[in-house]
Design a protein around this nucleic acid. Structure first.
Lengths: 332, 332
DNA sequence: TTGTAAGCGTTATCAT
DNA sequence: ATGATAACGCTTACAA
């Protein structure tokens, strides 16, 4: 592999000059620039990025920590990040945190030891205080899906409350008044917010929130079937169901059908997240779109701007969900 | 950040000795080792991986090229790769090739310029000759889902023919004899192989392959609905349908239902790939499992063994699919 | 077993 | 505008 030295010899200039034309950050006469370019071309020269990093103290790489590599949600996020970063010539190093504290901490240390210029983190288990401490080190980061007050300008979040509101509103507008709700685990902020939105929508339409129609679950499909079973056992009627995510909606749909309920005629259902299989369900699930790909893209732009001083982006911290109408809601 | 120099001073030894205990590749007396370890601990020393790479000409990183970051298939593959590599202290750099030649070539060059020690490639557009040329450079690679004869020991592939065989066999065993087939694009090797398996199964059961029951499509959901429409228009009856992937099966199911066909009673369907939404379909789709996560893991092990000389793995090039029984096939 | 010192391929600070 | 040359933090002969 040709080095900068080979180029300088062939072009008959110094190392420094070659470096200058590569980074074009200093004045080089057009004539020598051409000589150098020609030499590079002839040698098929490729700068050694490792050496560049060592010398410049910049790795041009950003570390990404996601909970899992697997699945629609994270892959959409990664895809948004990678595309944007790659376009700017940066690259991504990826680690998984598996939603537990020690893996998350390990992952972060790993990424830092890899000399990442910045981090994009989707962490769940680590504490706010840990993140605040981390912000005092010299590796800047942005947080996706996590709101830490004192770091808020580096946080990118979805307006979950609004999403919860929209889901329930869509149901209410079709005339439903007896509406059950399957929630995510309430220790999670997003589950809380979605529920808050739900309640607000009910209030706006003058419908009382009824405790018996509510069940807290765990965001999984099996949680959905179990919750549906519980709801049905109570023997109180309801014509619609809002689920705090699509997984649970899928479970609830299976269980409903198993119990002989005709979907969507006897029961309207709405989900949340718009995961990929939502439109493969039967009936096709109406749900709330979670623009995670966009949010990943924004995270990338945020580091491009804050860390690499590429100033052409408008930054945005809060993303708005929107309602996706399909076939799972019927007027009453 | 503390450097190896700081450690050596504090421990009262030379740089070289510190390096030796880090890499424990040379004899160091237990006493000095302890001194060094203590010094590292005290300083919170973290080796600078960039400098290590430059000096050792090893980056401890492996480049991954996938067609897309987005979606279950690739995320499952990445997840398998990352987990295995990370455990060995290597890390992954990821690029996307978008199934087109120029992006694939760019991606590969990008990864090489990042000094990856090895590559794991899932490429579709690039030619065999290109890959053969690439194998002459000094960056070794393994190929997932691609068979190149002269590189076969570095190829990891699924036995697609066997998968096609199993899918059709499952249908045949339920007594079906009029079986239609929606194929993937036949310029793709996997589509060919799956079809070959299908034909072989038919032959084994003494059923003739009938051209009118065959349609070539494109592996997409909309291709599935369109193909189903074409099949139905022909007005020849069939009691079962095998689809060369789950996407098309999903499309075919929607279209069938739209045309008033009662699934699975009037039509049995089998898919291929076992993508995540397969079990969310209604009826839950019986399909062929594609162990892509395992294959990713194997790719990582291959690199670990061939490039990093970690010798504890049994390598395997061919993976066997298996039939997943769910609710979409009924006896005739 | 331990130390010395020459790289690794760049960048960046001085001079010129 | 260009050239020397000292870092950057580590590995690895070669000596001792």
């Amino acid at each position: 592999m040709a080095t900068i030295y080979d180029v300088s010899v062939l072009a008959g200039v110094s190392l420094a000059t070659v470096s200058r034309v590569m980074n074009n950050n200093a004045k080089v006469s057009e004539k020598t620039r051409q000589k150098v370019l020609a030499a590079m071309e002839e040698l098929g020269y490729r700068p050694n990025t490792i050496a560049q990093s060592l010398a410049s103290n910049r790795s041009n790489s950003v570390g990404i920590l996601v909970s899992e590599l697997y699945g629609y949600f994270y892959s959409a996020m990664l895809s948004g990040i990678e595309k944007e970063l790659r376009r700017a010539g940066k690259h991504v190093i990826i680690a998984a945190g598996h939603s537990n504290k020690s893996d998350e901490v390990d992952g972060i240390e790993f990424l830092i030891s890899r000399s990442c210029d910045a981090l994009i983190l989707h962490v769940e288990a680590v504490s706010d205080d840990f993140l605040i401490e981390l912000s005092k080190t010299n590796t800047p980061f942005v947080l996706i899906n996590r709101q830490v007050e004192s770091l808020s300008s580096n946080c990118i979040v979805l307006n979950n409350e609004q999403g919860g509101y929209l889901a329930t509103k869509a149901i209410l507008e079709q005339g439903h008044r007896k509406i059950s709700y399957i929630s995510g685990p309430l220790w999670k902020r997003d589950a809380q917010d979605r529920l808050t939105g739900h309640k607000k929508a009910l209030a706006d339409y003058g419908v009382a929130f009824e405790e018996p129609l509510f069940v807290e679950s765990d965001y999984t499909e099996s949680g959905g079937v179990e919750s549906m079973r519980r709801l049905l056992q109570k023997n109180i009627s309801f014509s619609a169901l809002v689920c705090a995510n699509d997984e649970m909606a899928s479970g609830a749909m299976s269980e409903s059908r198993a119990q002989g309920i005709d979907l969507p005629n006897e029961l309207s259902i709405v989900g949340f997240d718009n995961v990929v299989f939502a439109r493969h369900l039967y009936p096709k699930l109406s749900t709330i779109e979670y623009p995670i790909n966009e949010m990943g893209k924004m995270a990338a732009q945020m580091v491009l701007r804050n860390v690499y001083d590429i100033d052409k982006f408008d930054l945005q911290n809060l993303f708005e969900p929107k309602f996706i109408e399909r076939d799972s809601i019927r007027p009453i």
